[in-house]
């Protein structure tokens, strides 16, 4: 691992933190569910860095949260987060970033925009809910169906983030191609 890789990993961890702190980026979605941009960081880490580095960036972010930095949206942090009902979603983030990065590599022959959209959808939504919903059901002692209903309100916000992630990946591919490490 060279210096540039280490800095890039730290960069996406910091980006994920910053996205959670930016109040301006919170999207008000139908139903009044406040949606923060934090999972955009998960999608971008995977899409831009590739599987291993992307997952490491998000693990680094969660490591900081566990150490006690209040970096999760809403100023949450510390070990309590990992005991909360939403812990399944949060623990799925590195896996989501990994899968998104893997898809970027497997679709290397595609154009960046559709590849990034697919990667962000599967990694950033699919994988996160796949682990998050059973986690919620288990931790809150409820049925899978109930947990899924409770989680569904966040999906529209996540869909917007997929679009943003894809557009950002496309912009970077044109403006600073060497930064798209998942494709180099």
């Amino acid at each position: 691992m060279n210096d540039r890789t280490l800095v890039q990993i730290a960069f996406y961890a910091a980006l994920t933190a910053a996205l959670g702190l930016l109040p301006k980026l919170a999207i008000p979605v139908a139903g009044g569910v406040p949606v923060t941009a934090q999972t955009l960081g998960i999608m971008l880490a995977g899409v831009m860095l590739g599987p291993v580095r992307g997952a490491l960036a998000i693990l680094l972010f969660l490591f900081l949260v566990a150490l006690g930095a209040p970096l999760l949206a809403g100023g949450r942090g510390g070990l309590g987060v990992f005991q909360s009902p939403g812990a399944g979603f949060i623990l799925a983030w590195p896996i989501g970033a990994f899968v998104a990065g893997l898809i970027m590599q497997k679709t290397a022959s595609w154009r960046v925009l559709p590849a990034a959209a697919l990667a962000a959808t599967v990694g950033g939504i699919g994988v996160v809910y796949l682990f998050g919903i059973p986690g919620l059901a288990y931790l809150a002692d409820m049925s899978l169906a109930k947990a899924a209903t409770g989680s569904a309100v966040f999906i529209p916000g996540d869909a917007i983030k997929v679009v943003v992630a894809a557009v950002v990946a496309e912009t970077v591919a044109r403006g600073l191609p060497r930064a798209l490490l998942s494709r180099s």
Binding site: A14, L15, L22, L67
Partner: peptide, 15 residues
């Protein structure tokens, strides 16, 4: 440890 410090330095710069 170095990575943690870098994150703490980057976050405010990004903002």
């Amino acid at each position: 440890a170095l990575a943690v410090t870098l994150v703490l330095r980057f976050a405010p710069v990004l903002l």
